[in-house]
């Protein structure tokens, strides 16, 4: 990619009226490559050159990550809301439960599901870096990785939740989970009132990504 830019000198001229067609450039190609981009490309090239990895393996890994999205997690939550046996397994052994619904987390770190109840509201953070249940929710939102979210969620979780629109009553415990080691956490939200008799698909549609991080509650459309 860098080679392409250099050959055409895109970084040197800011003209958009050139007459040769090419694919739209990605946003991060708009400016000169940063130090980390150069480093990543150098390391990637070396790994391929030395036969540690193949370009196909890297592409397959990118595809795998792209195939994961919050819709997967929502499906799991909806199943847990409608199937008590599945819910029990999900809370006890998340990996096994996910396997049961055809989601293989493979070599990813262990998963753990924490349940919101009338007495406890859970919220997930990773203060050391940005550990996130990617194999179930896909790529994390930018704010999850921000210093502000990571530091304030442990010191003032209620204040952070209010900013997300969630006010937790003072008689409900707020329980923060700092993903400091080999486990990735997902919140099982409470099934909201007014959803009796709903199908799994309809239930899954109200489970957003943030519900599974703990920064939102499922909303029933009026």
């Amino acid at each position: 990619m860098t080679t392409h830019d250099h050959e055409h000198g895109h970084d040197d001229h800011d003209h958009h009226d050139h007459d040769h067609p090419h694919a739209p450039r990605k946003d991060h190609d708009a400016g000169p490559a940063g130090a980390y981009e150069v480093l990543e490309e150098a390391v990637r090239s070396l790994l391929i050159e030395k036969g540690v990895l193949t370009a196909q393996e890297i592409a397959a890994s990118v595809d795998l990550m792209d195939s994961r999205s919050p819709a997967l997690g929502a499906k799991v939550v909806a199943r847990a809301w409608t199937d008590p046996v599945f819910k029990k397994l999900l809370l006890k052994d998340t990996r096994a439960a996910l396997m049961q619904v055809g989601i293989d987390i493979g070599a990813a770190p262990e998963f753990s599901t924490v349940e919101n109840t009338a007495d406890v509201h859970n919220v997930i953070v990773c203060t050391l870096c940005s550990c996130y249940p990617k194999m179930l929710l896909g790529i994390p939102p930018a704010w999850y990785k921000s210093l502000a979210y990571r530091s304030r969620t442990i010191t003032d979780p209620r204040g952070v939740l209010v900013e997300f629109g969630v006010t937790v009553p003072r008689d409900v415990e707020v329980r923060v989970h700092d993903s400091t080691a080999d486990l990735r956490y997902i919140v099982l939200p409470m099934r909201p009132k007014g959803t009796r008799g709903w199908s799994e698909d309809r239930l899954a549609a109200i489970v957003t990504r943030d519900c599974m991080i703990g920064t939102a509650l499922p909303q029933v459309p009026a």
């Binding site: 010191t155 979780p157 209620r158 008689d171 329980r175 486990l183």
Partner: peptide, 15 residues
């Protein structure tokens, strides 16, 4: 200086 309720807790995974 945590000013939330006394019942609020935090969990972390420690070796």
């Amino acid at each position: 200086r945590y000013d939330g309720p006394a019942g609020d807790q935090l969990e972390a995974d420690i070796f």
